[in-house]
């Protein structure tokens, strides 16, 4: 990533945070391209025991696009929030492509905070995606919180800052969302 492009991303993030929605339109394709490249690179090297660390990928994209130079922490949280949505989309697209070409498996995805749910392959990832869509339909904010945690590894204080809500609300939404998702996924897992 050339230095000028990394400066451009930082600039776009700043504009977006200040309320310029067009900055996000410019930022998204750059970010999507980089995340997709990283994800495919890691998914290529698939082995049966391979575990994809989604939060590590998002973090790597951040370092490549924004760089480690003194960027305000707030920018980082906003970046990860956007990246986690794209990460989800990339992984789901990838799982669908594999299914369409009738290849089995998919790699194991390590979701932080998701110890109780097993996402061992494409089918489970797509089930999680469906469950998350259902949750977002009844509670958009909870859907966002889960997405930021699962796919971006954002902490509760970072999420409260990105969404402008209290830490207690994040904790409450998170605790109830994971229970809801757990039930939803164990229902769909049954034949």
């Amino acid at each position: 990533m050339p230095a000028n492009e990394s400066g451009k991303v930082t600039e776009l993030l700043r504009h977006w945070k200040q309320g310029d929605e067009r900055a996000l339109d410019t930022l998204l394709p750059l970010l999507y391209k980089e995340l997709r490249r990283l994800a495919h690179y890691h998914l290529q090297s698939e082995r049966p025991d391979h575990t994809l660390q989604t939060t590590a990928l998002v973090h790597e994209a951040y370092l490549r696009l924004v760089g480690a130079q003194s960027v305000e922490l707030q920018n980082r949280a906003h970046f990860i929030a956007v990246a986690s949505r794209l990460m989800r989309q990339i992984l789901v697209d990838y799982a669908r492509e594999r299914r369409a070409s009738k290849r089995d498996g998919g790699c194991r995805i390590a979701f932080e905070y998701l110890e109780a749910l097993s996402v061992k392959g494409d089918a489970e990832l797509l089930a999680l995606d469906d469950a998350l869509n259902e949750l977002s339909a009844i509670d958009e904010r909870q859907g966002k919180i889960v997405e930021m945690k699962f796919f971006g590894g954002l902490s509760a204080p970072e999420i409260s800052q990105v969404l402008g809500i209290s830490r207690a609300t994040v904790d409450r939404d998170w605790a109830t969302a994971r229970v809801w998702l757990h039930r939803q996924m164990s229902r769909t897992a049954r034949p």
Partner: peptide
């Protein structure tokens, strides 16, 4: 849901 929570 409480039951599912125990599963978690």
């Amino acid at each position: 849901l409480l039951l599912a929570g125990e599963g978690v």
